[in-house]
Computed example of a mutant assay.
Amino acid sequence: MDLAKKDSIYIDKREFSILSLIKEGLLGSCTHLMNEKESENVLKTGKFNNESFPYPLSFAPRIKNENLKNVKSGQRLNLCLDNEIVGFIDIESKFKNDKDRPSIFNPNTCILDDISEFCLSGEFEIYNSDIKKSKNEFIELKKSHNARRITAIVSSFDPLHRAHERIFRWTIDKADFVVVFLIESYEDNGFNFELKEQYLRIFAQKYLPMDRIFIFPLKDIDIFHAHLNPGLESILAKGLGCTKLVVGQNHSGLGMHYSHNQPCTILDQFSMDYNIEIIILPEFVFCDKCKMIVSTHSCPHGTHHHLHYNSHSLKELLRAGIIPPVVFVRKEISALILAKLFPHRFKNMQTIYNSLFSTNGILEYKKDEEFYEKLLELHQTSYMA
């Protein structure tokens, strides 16, 4: 496609995904790209339509588009991604982009990408959006289950560990339906999105009631990175129709403090504005005295008896090829991750498997993850200790 065409602009996958969220109403009541006046008002008041709103929805494409200088009000521009038309925008106005001011497309002003000098406002349309497909699928499930109490969890699950399982079960017990928003990893050593979605779905299918849980993937979207603005998560949850949002007390950006002996967070205002209940869970640990996963609030034993579910450290072990104990991560999850990180690690893996482990007398080809699972089973064997 010729970029010189006056009726086309290029966008990237990230912008396409964020535009899809806006269009589907998952980032608040505003479903258009804001003009200069609206953007200035959000920056000044922190609100839109009397609801808390952290960033203006002002759009300055990151990919260089020379034709933006000549864009006029009333013009329709096709949105192009990888040489395909994926939508359009009807231009209401064009205004100067202040790169020092945040927007939903550039929430971290410390990272100044080579974005356009102009912002575009107006109504727009997105074609064939995975966000829309997931939303519609959820709405159908919600109707079929007549779900009223819907709880949201937003996490990168990088990796999925036992404390996450504890949160899942606690949440499912207290809701008609649970929505799990899977977000991109923000650390440099984070696992890729496809792998995370694969092991999350495998775990849900094997160990959770699938008729009461829905996995909503948010691929190619970095605005939820590191949970720096948990207000966005409450807006996201409410936009899908959730009535509760569950976050952990160690949630980055939560700003937790006490006022008159009552816990307060920056989410309190979002909770009131969007009529969504925010539940802050304590940290979950494994206590070697209780011999189970407990919360730090309910366990009477000291921290020297606690094993902590530190995602970064577990990830370091896995990337080093070390299998975490099953008290931290389920064997199926560890086996899948290691098999993806170290494909064909052992040239003679089949021989090793047959020479170490019992078989039913039939030589069968074993996948890498089956080898790791069997090895983990032996790590759990205690009668020789």
Rank of each mutant, 00 (worst) to 15 (best):
L254Y: 09
L254Q: 08
L254G: 09
G255D: 08
G255L: 09
M256R: 13
M256E: 15
M256K: 15
H257T: 13
H257I: 09
H257D: 11
H257W: 13
Y258R: 10
Y258L: 07
S259Y: 15
H260D: 15
N261G: 05
N261I: 04
Q262C: 07
Q262W: 07
P263E: 06
C264P: 01
C264S: 11
I266V: 15
I266D: 02
I266P: 06
L267G: 05
L267M: 12
L267S: 08
D268T: 04
D268I: 04
D268L: 05
Q269P: 00
Q269C: 06
Q269Y: 06
F270I: 01
S271Q: 12
S271T: 10
S271M: 09
M272L: 13
M272Y: 11
M272A: 14
M272R: 15
M272D: 14
D273I: 00
D273C: 01
Y274D: 01
I276K: 00
E277D: 11
E277Y: 08
E277A: 12
E277T: 12
E277H: 11
I278K: 01
I278F: 01
I278G: 01
I278D: 10
I279D: 06
I279K: 13
I280Q: 02
I280A: 01
I280R: 02
L281N: 08
L281Y: 04
P282G: 07
P282S: 06
E283Q: 13
E283S: 13
E283G: 07
F284W: 06
F284M: 07
V285N: 02
V285L: 03
D288F: 05
K289T: 13
K289R: 15
